[in-house]
Design a protein around this nucleic acid. Structure first.
Lengths: 273, 273
DNA sequence: AACGTCGTTCCGATAATTGGAACAGGGGAG
DNA sequence: CTCCCCTGTTCCAATTATCGGAACGACGTT
């Protein structure tokens, strides 16, 4: 394998620092480590160039070479990124909420924000006895329209049918990721209307087959515009929509205890009915 | 070999990719974001150079610029590093053990490996109702001699008094981080002998005042050489050494359930007395 | 013992980086 | 309203670090 010839994504060959960053990316995408030859092949660059790039990374602590000569991501980079993540607001503020919810429900919890029509996961907590592993990764993203987190946030951004049309026009068509994905602007608009009325959003296997979730927006910074949203995800075959909604009182209790009741409601509630 | 360290040490200006990586480090160390001027000042470089370096990072998704013009670490980097971490062996194998132990004891658990006389934290789980936040960070390190994880691993590396002396000679003197730190080779040797006899190591406020922990080595790869160690940390004022030792049976049960009993014992047990 | 492979080093030609200075645009004070 | 200062951004010729083919030394295998 590895006939990685299609390096033409960027029109021109990577040079200088761009190449160094590409090596960093390559190392991150190969958790088992990578040999110099593999890196050079993946870059389409001579071994000498790959070696120089790796040298820069090693010198800065962003890469390391084990006893067998295999290159890995450096511990310094892990420390920097994990330290960054733990020091950021989402970890400090909603972290306790996510941990308590994950433990009480035994399910995976997320916090995400809306960026250009996509949900970006900012925090994730797996319960201690996890039956399965969610595919989401911190820093990863999904289109907002087919995730619970996304709809919980879109419901305050797209308050009428015209907004929904603009959203679809700007961020591409609604693609059927699963057979339950809401693929028409009408269906999405209706879902958002429901979410606004209820104060929460559901995702019934719309992004991942077999996974359902319930999500609520949080108003941490602005009283009128949600900062982000939290969600609880579960396996659809053993969790009914009623089960999800049944967690609501407890979610609101825990959020209120940890963050206050103001973060649950917009100062300027969207037009409900 | 022996790549001269003069590049990093002397006051010469960083150039090229080294400068780009320095910017990346700067961004990671400023979770609230950083302005172009700050970055340039921190690098001792003209604004134009900092701007170009930031441009390279933004293009690769390793940095981003918010609506106010402030630069932040990019979501792509978070995704890459968290994805890397979750895909690595320690997360997959000892992760469940750490989560279950953290939940049962209500304390923070760690997994760490030994690298050049230092412990490097590879995984960390905070309990859902965390009373305090450990200062450790994944990828971070501490000298092995004053941590429970370190002693749990050193006890299989430094099997006699001469080994201890060599360790001290190679990795610097034993410094009194707290008033309980073991600062003499004699005390360290004695602690390692005890640890070998017991099969676990304790840290009684030797690295952080007020923090105690119990640690056990795990033999995941080799039956004779420990791969890494797990630990449970607690507040010293409300946790006695007996409390720590009292967790032992449960620790061994959970490890055996998740990983098998072979990982607990070396095939070639070190000489006890 | 000869081969293949791997990581590493060397060095002249090349092309990318450098950084001072100028530009654009916003916010705040007067 | 105007001016001023502080942002981030762009420009461009001189410089200088990077490029990469080729040679090297070290292993492990055949």
């Amino acid at each position: 394998m590895a006939p990685s010839a299609d390096r033409a994504a960027d029109a021109r060959a990577l040079t200088g620092s761009a190449r160094v960053l590409a090596v960093l990316r390559h190392l991150a995408e190969h958790p088992g480590g990578s040999r110099l030859g593999e890196v050079a092949a993946a870059l389409g660059a001579p071994k000498a160039s790959a070696h120089r790039a790796l040298g820069s990374l090693v010198q800065q602590g962003f890469a390391r070479q084990d006893a067998q000569g295999v290159y890995h991501l450096g511990f310094d980079l892990l420390r920097l990124v994990f330290g960054y993540h733990e020091a950021r607001a989402p970890s400090l503020t909603v972290g306790p909420v996510l941990r308590r919810l994950a433990e009480e429900t035994g399910e995976t919890t997320h916090y995400g924000v809306l960026v250009e029509g996509n949900i970006i996961y900012q925090a994730k907590v797996s319960p201690s006895r996890s039956t399965f592993q969610m595919s989401s990764v911190i820093g990863g993203s999904n289109p907002a329209y087919r995730t619970g987190l996304g709809k919980a946030l879109l419901m305050h951004e797209l308050t009428d049918r015209a907004d929904v049309d603009r959203y679809v026009a700007e961020y591409g068509p609604l693609e059927p990721r699963t057979r339950h994905t809401l693929c028409s602007p009408d269906a999405l608009h209706k879902a958002l209307v429901d979410a606004r009325r209820n104060g929460y959003a559901l995702d019934l296997q719309e992004n991942d087959l077999g996974i359902v979730c319930i999500a609520l927006p949080l108003f941490l910074d602005s009283p009128s515009r949600p900062t982000g949203a939290i969600s609880i995800s579960a396996v659809g075959s053993r969790t009914t929509p009623d089960d999800l909604v049944g967690w609501l009182p407890r979610i609101r209790e825990i959020v209120t205890e940890e963050l206050g009741s103001a973060v649950l409601q917009p100062a300027d509630p969207p037009t409900g009915a």
